[in-house]
C-alpha cells in the first residue's frame, strides 16, 4: 500500500514537473509575442529587460499550469466520468497549437475595438474547448481559472507589482480571461494525457 502511494506520488510529481516546464516555456513564448506588439523595435537587450522586469511571471505561470494539469484528471476521477474524447498526443499537440494561435491572433491582429477583440477571443476559446475537450467539467474548470486568474492579475496590478506597458487597462482585461480559459483547457488536456500513463490511476488506458 505504501509503495503504491509512493509510486503514485512520484508519478504526480513527474507530471507536475512536466506541466510546470511546459507552462513556463509557453509563457515565455507568448510573452515574446505580446512584447513584439507593444515595443516598437526590439533592442537587443529586450530579453534581459523583460526578464529583469518580470522574472517571476514564467515560474508562476508554470506553477499554475502544473496545478491545472493535475487538477483536471483529479476532477475526472472524483466526478467519475472518464474523459474519452480524443485521448491522443496528436490532438494534444493540436490543442497547444491552437492555443498559441489564439495568442498570436490576439497579439497581431488589429481589432477595431475591445469589444470585438474580446468577443472574437471568447468565441475562439469556446471553439477550442468544443474541439478538444467536450466535457462539462473542463468547461467549468476553465471558466473558474479564467475568473481566478483575472482576479489575481487585477490584484497584482493594483498593488503595482506588475506594470503593463499598455496603458489601456480595459484592453488588457478583455483578452486576459480568454487567454486564461484557453490556457486552462490546454493544460488540462496535457494533464489528462499525461495521467493516462499513470499505472496506479483508476482510469483505464484505452
Amino acid at each position: 500500500m505504501v509503495a503504491a502511494r509512493v509510486l503514485k506520488g512520484l508519478h504526480v510529481l513527474m507530471r507536475g514537473s512536466v506541466l510546470f516546464m511546459v507552462g513556463g516555456l509557453l509563457t515565455i513564448v507568448l510573452n515574446l509575442l505580446q512584447v513584439q506588439r507593444k515595443v516598437t523595435l526590439f533592442p537587443p537587450e529586450v530579453m534581459i529587460t523583460m526578464f529583469q522586469s518580470a522574472w517571476w511571471v514564467p515560474p508562476a505561470c508554470g506553477a499554475g499550469a502544473a496545478i491545472i494539469g493535475l487538477m483536471y484528471p483529479c476532477l475526472d476521477n472524483k466526478l467519475g466520468e472518464p474523459h474519452r474524447f480524443q485521448r491522443e498526443w496528436s490532438s494534444v499537440m493540436r490543442c497547444v497549437a491552437v492555443f498559441v494561435g489564439i495568442n498570436h491572433a490576439s497579439a497581431k491582429i488589429n481589432f477595431d475595438n475591445n469589444m470585438q477583440l474580446s468577443l472574437t477571443l471568447a468565441a475562439m476559446s469556446i471553439g477550442m474547448w468544443w474541439l478538444f475537450d467536450r466535457s462539462r467539467s473542463g468547461f467549468g474548470l476553465g471558466v473558474l481559472i479564467a475568473v481566478l486568474a483575472t482576479f489575481v492579475t487585477q490584484l497584482l496590478v493594483y498593488h503595482g507589482v506588475y506594470r503593463y506597458t499598455e496603458p489601456d487597462f480595459l484592453y488588457v482585461r478583455s483578452w486576459l480571461p480568454c487567454i486564461f480559459f484557453s490556457g486552462g483547457v490546454t493544460m488540462g488536456n496535457i494533464g489528462r494525457q499525461l495521467a493516462l500513463y499513470d499505472p496506479t490511476n483508476k482510469e483505464k488506458v484505452e
Binding site: 513564448v29 507568448l30 515574446l32
Partner: peptide, 8 residues
C-alpha cells in the same frame, strides 16, 4: 528581424 522574434 531579430532572432528573438523568431522564437514564437
Amino acid at each position: 528581424f531579430s532572432i528573438i522574434e523568431l522564437v514564437p
